[in-house]
């Protein structure tokens, strides 16, 4: 809430001294927005990371979505923020995927390109951690990796429906608002996603 302190005081400074009620309203709005962003940022990051399979891109996408929501839609009612935020996030994810696909197409024509530079191995990341992981942690990590890979392999709409409904916990109406489709479509996408994941992963254990 440190950002709120500076935000509240500086934004409130713009308001004339006689309008104390406006200053309080502005501070409340800033506090609500910060609380909302703090509540969604981790899940949003994981959703973007699963879709993009890239940590830095996922962080950029989450920051863009936060910026967009904060600068354009902060005046909307707070109950609309979540569907709006996830709609913006998905749009940014698609932008990155589109940019990647164009870049890969262009790069594939370059004669001197021998390997995918994006997939270049980082020796620090590849360094083996000598400390052994506890068996439960190892199993959990393996299960998560398998689940993440399976979700990433889903069609975009199924992935979106599954993550918003199952992971973020949006209800059908909120998911439909976020995906800009009917509630029936959300149910269909979600059902198909669960079926596809189940067929890929079987009865996986954590």
């Amino acid at each position: 809430m440190a950002a709120f302190a500076s935000l509240g005081s500086q934004t409130a400074a713009l308001i004339p001294p006689g309008k104390a009620h406006l200053r309080e309203t502005t501070q409340d709005a800033a506090r609500s927005l910060e609380t909302f962003l703090a509540s969604v940022e981790r899940k949003a990051f994981r959703i973007a990371q699963i879709a993009l399979r890239h940590e830095a891109d996922a962080l950029d996408v989450v920051q863009d979505a936060m910026m967009q929501l904060s600068s354009r839609y902060a005046t909307r009612p707070a109950e609309e923020w979540k569907p709006l935020f996830y709609r913006i996030l998905e749009n940014r994810v698609r932008d990155v995927q589109r940019r990647r696909s164009v870049r890969n197409r262009v790069m594939s024509y370059l004669p001197w390109r021998t390997e995918d530079e994006e997939a270049a191995i980082d020796p620090i990341e590849q360094a083996v951690d000598k400390a052994p992981l506890p068996p439960e942690q190892l199993e959990s990590d393996e299960a998560m990796a398998a689940l993440e890979q399976a979700i990433a392999g889903l069609p975009a709409r199924q992935r979106q429906a599954f993550l918003l409904r199952n992971f973020e916990g949006l209800d059908v109406a909120e998911t439909a608002a976020s995906m800009k489709c009917s509630q029936g479509s959300v149910k269909t996408h979600y059902f198909r996603a669960v079926q596809a994941l189940r067929s890929k992963l079987g009865d996986f254990r954590t």
Binding site: L7, A30, L59, V62, S70
Partner: peptide, 24 residues
């Protein structure tokens, strides 16, 4: 999502503050 690294959590906090500052 609860076991994100400290670096990622820090970047997310910075992103949130940047978004609020941009609005301001």
């Amino acid at each position: 999502s609860e076991e994100l690294s400290g670096a990622v959590r820090s970047r997310l906090t910075q992103a949130r503050h940047a978004a609020l500052a941009a609005r301001r």
